[in-house]
């Protein structure tokens, strides 16, 4: 098991996958981080030196990911609701926000449009 940013990963896990498991860190950023530390795209997390794993932790701790990234999204939704806007209300109700029909097919909206968007629990 290799510890990166407080999370233990299995040695066989791709570094790319491990990085992208953090909220707010996608393919673009993970590719850049890996290039910065000269980790090739198919590297497993067990193959990178211990030094690099520590450097990755340091790099991730400077970034807006996990709870910080969630809080930004949630604050934006909260602001809309507090102002009493239509979008804020639709978020609170878990309904589509941008004028889509609600007769059918609102599963994505039900799943995503909540005040606590992105969940409250962190991996860290």
């Amino acid at each position: 098991m290799v510890n990166v940013f407080g999370v233990n990963f299995h040695e066989r896990k791709f570094v790319k996958k491990a990085l992208e498991s953090f909220y707010g860190l996608g393919p673009q950023t993970s590719a850049r981080i890996m290039a910065k530390y000269t980790i090739h795209p198919l590297a497993r997390i067990g193959a990178i030196p211990h030094k690099t794993a520590t450097a990755l932790t340091a790099e991730l701790s400077t970034m807006t990911i996990e709870m910080d990234a969630r809080r930004i999204v949630q604050d934006n939704i909260k602001r809309l609701r507090d102002m009493g806007t239509y979008r804020g209300r639709r978020h609170a109700m878990g309904l589509p926000v941008r004028g889509q029909k609600t007769r059918t097919q609102t599963e994505t909206a039900k799943k995503l449009n909540t005040l606590e968007r992105g969940g409250t629990s962190s991996r860290i």
């Binding site: 850049r32 290039a35 530390y37 090739h40």
Partner: peptide
């Protein structure tokens, strides 16, 4: 090549 430098 498919590799990227630290400057991406």
């Amino acid at each position: 090549s498919d590799y990227r430098s630290p400057a991406f």
